[in-house]
């Protein structure tokens, strides 16, 4: 990743102006792709000094600044208090502590990459994103379409719903990217998300409908997952393998939230 100019705007308004004016500019997150990506940009826009590193409880929701590091999120007492540690569990095996101390939640979300486990986890929570230009956008909407491309993610808002959550994943080695990730929540209804297929995480419709209509149909709902989603291959696993693993992980997660 290369850029000709590095700027630190004094506020988000100025940052958005630069971003909109120059199509070759980029908002810098944790810059974990600094040496992996071969993209060239004209301007790197750094917002790390604009007070976007925080986690706070505001009424019935949790607000997380977009520049909060993944390690802070993983170890924060507020985040660990809710959702059966769903969020920390989706982060704790990513590369290493040194990586997570630098990677930001905003960068992890905005990249919409298939292997991003935190996206799988956030999909089953009541989560919204706040952008500088587009305002509040439901998390699932942001993930499922690519309408928002040139905007600044300011914060992540999660409702403090009560209920059980479960996170399951499979990886070839302990700090590698997953070959499959599954999150299930049971608040007002059961939600199931399957990620790293290797495509980006998506919410289940059919299997979720089945399990919500009859809570005893854990096995059937889990098996339906294999039919509902497309599973592809990458260097970590074959599509067939992922298809066989998915029902197993979903079954275990459903059993956990319905215990």
């Amino acid at each position: 990743m290369r850029f000709d100019k590095f700027v630190q705007p004094k506020n988000l308004k100025t940052a958005l102006e630069i971003l909109k004016k120059d199509p070759k500019s980029v908002i810098l997150g944790g810059t974990t792709f600094l040496r992996i990506s071969d993209k060239n940009y004209s301007t790197g826009i750094d917002l790390s000094a604009l007070g976007l590193k925080y986690i706070k409880e505001v009424g019935d929701q949790i607000e997380i600044g977009a520049y909060t590091s993944l390690r802070t999120l993983e170890t924060d007492p507020i985040i660990n208090k809710y959702f059966g540690k769903l969020v920390p569990k989706s982060l704790e095996n990513l590369i290493g502590v040194q990586f997570r101390n630098n990677a930001t939640i905003g960068g992890a979300i905005f990249g919409r990459l298939g292997f991003t486990e935190i996206i799988t986890a956030l999909l089953v929570l009541d989560c919204e994103l706040e952008f500088e230009e587009n305002g509040l956008v439901p998390f699932s909407e942001f993930i499922s379409n690519w309408k928002i491309k040139r905007d600044i993610l300011k914060k992540i808002i999660i409702k403090k719903n009560k209920g059980k959550c479960s996170y399951k994943m499979m990886r070839n080695s302990s700090s590698d990217f997953t070959i499959l990730s599954v999150a299930v929540s049971n608040f007002d209804k059961i939600r199931i998300a399957v990620g790293t297929r290797p495509a980006i995480a998506t919410l289940s419709i059919k299997a979720a409908q089945l399990i919500n209509s009859d809570k005893n149909k854990i096995e059937e709902a889990a098996n339906l997952i294999a039919e509902e989603f497309k599973f592809g291959k990458d260097l970590r696993a074959e599509g067939k393998y992922r298809k066989m693993i998915a029902p197993v992980l979903v079954k275990r997660a459903l059993q956990e939230v319905l215990k």
Partner: peptide
């Protein structure tokens, strides 16, 4: 130099961080 091996780790404000991924400008 791609954020995997950890040998470039330094402490940034006391926290271990990969210096290969940390912008010097920051």
């Amino acid at each position: 130099d791609t954020g995997t091996c950890g040998v470039c780790s330094v402490l940034i404000d006391g926290k271990p961080t990969l210096s290969c991924q940390f912008l010097a400008a920051r």
